[in-house]
Simulated assay, not measured.
Amino acid sequence: MRTTTIALLGILFVTATAACGEPPAPPATAVLIRAQAENGSPVGGVEVFTGPRLVARTEADGRARLDVRGAEGETFSVQVRCPSGFRSPTAPLPIRNFDVGSSTPAEYSVMCRSLRHTLVVAVRASDGPNLPVFYLGKEVARTDRSGSAHVSMDMEVHDRAQLVLGTGGKENEKIHPQNPAATFEMPDHDDIQVFEMKFTRDKPKVVRKPRPAGPVVF
């Protein structure tokens, strides 16, 4: 009888311990992270971290699946690292745990800004036809009969480029100013800027012929 009582007490103790244990962890909620560039194209190879741990990486379509756990409405923060050639977001990405019963995963967008962009410089040289446009000492364009030209450059953000309108040669020795230059800085997006210059030319000197000597009248 005593043995039976001890056995029953043991069973009750185990049952009570199980009942007072930690509640089961809530199921994971799937969220999607979509990474894209400024032009809307997907960016693959974007890494998602929680602290030092890599938890997801986007595929070629720019999407990655991430499973989060926690109470509904709880917010988590992840760090996003864009691949080489892109600038990563500086602020953490907040992710909120929504209703686990939802059939459509919540989606979060991440912007990876390109470190290189295209700068087009439209040259407008008034009274400056057929002038070479130099970049780093090399001719990259030449103005047409109206004095217009276009230069396209691929540069990193905040890089600077100086263009020079060449006025060398005997045919341009009377044009002013001589070899004007302009500096352009690449913004964080593709851009079009204008290099406008108004030239003046020396007027040809008028040589007056001396009057023939005539009779002196007193």
Score class of each variant (00 low, 15 high):
residue 82 C to H: 01
residue 74 E to S: 15
residue 141 A to Y: 08
residue 121 V to D: 07
residue 103 S to Q: 10
residue 78 V to L: 11
residue 137 G to A: 05
residue 136 L to W: 10
residue 83 P to I: 01
residue 163 L to H: 06
residue 168 G to Y: 09
residue 109 S to V: 04
residue 163 L to A: 05
residue 148 S to M: 09
residue 145 R to D: 12
residue 97 N to C: 08
residue 162 Q to A: 09
residue 148 S to P: 00
residue 118 T to C: 05
residue 160 R to E: 07
residue 92 P to W: 11
residue 84 S to R: 12
residue 96 R to W: 00
residue 100 V to A: 12
residue 152 S to W: 12
residue 152 S to L: 05
residue 83 P to G: 06
residue 160 R to P: 01
residue 102 S to Y: 14
residue 177 P to M: 03
residue 106 A to P: 07
residue 160 R to N: 02
residue 175 I to N: 01
residue 131 L to M: 10
residue 139 E to N: 13
residue 149 A to H: 10
residue 146 S to I: 09
residue 107 E to L: 14
residue 102 S to E: 12
residue 147 G to H: 13
residue 128 G to Q: 04
residue 90 T to N: 15
residue 174 K to S: 11
residue 126 S to R: 12
residue 151 V to Y: 03
residue 157 V to A: 09
residue 99 D to C: 04
residue 122 A to N: 11
residue 138 K to C: 03
residue 90 T to M: 05
residue 136 L to K: 15
residue 143 T to E: 00
residue 129 P to M: 14
residue 87 R to V: 13
residue 96 R to A: 03
residue 104 T to R: 12
residue 139 E to P: 12
residue 150 H to V: 05
residue 129 P to V: 09
residue 166 G to C: 05
residue 83 P to C: 12
residue 78 V to Y: 12
residue 142 R to M: 15
residue 122 A to D: 13
residue 92 P to Q: 13
residue 104 T to F: 03
residue 138 K to S: 09
residue 162 Q to Y: 05
residue 110 V to G: 10
residue 150 H to R: 14
residue 117 H to L: 04
residue 116 R to A: 14
residue 110 V to S: 01
residue 159 D to E: 12
residue 150 H to Y: 00
residue 76 F to S: 14
residue 92 P to T: 07
residue 158 H to C: 07
residue 158 H to Q: 12
residue 122 A to W: 04
residue 146 S to C: 02
residue 174 K to F: 09
residue 119 L to Y: 03
residue 72 E to A: 10
residue 87 R to D: 11
residue 94 P to N: 05
residue 158 H to M: 14
residue 175 I to P: 00
residue 126 S to E: 15
residue 161 A to C: 01
residue 178 Q to W: 04
residue 84 S to N: 15
residue 75 T to N: 07
residue 177 P to Y: 08
residue 114 S to M: 13
residue 108 Y to T: 01
residue 83 P to R: 09
residue 121 V to L: 08
residue 84 S to P: 07
residue 111 M to T: 08
residue 91 A to M: 05
residue 90 T to A: 09
residue 147 G to R: 06
residue 105 P to L: 13
residue 108 Y to L: 03
residue 114 S to D: 14
residue 131 L to Q: 02
residue 98 F to T: 00
residue 97 N to A: 01
residue 173 E to G: 02
residue 107 E to P: 02
residue 161 A to I: 02
residue 140 V to I: 07
residue 141 A to T: 10
residue 130 N to T: 06
residue 161 A to E: 02
residue 74 E to F: 08
residue 72 E to W: 13
residue 126 S to C: 05
residue 107 E to M: 15
residue 105 P to W: 07
residue 168 G to M: 07
residue 165 L to T: 07
residue 146 S to H: 10
residue 135 Y to I: 02
residue 148 S to A: 11
residue 161 A to T: 02
residue 157 V to D: 14
residue 80 V to G: 11
residue 96 R to P: 03
residue 155 M to T: 01
residue 90 T to I: 10
residue 159 D to R: 03
residue 105 P to D: 07
residue 172 N to Q: 15
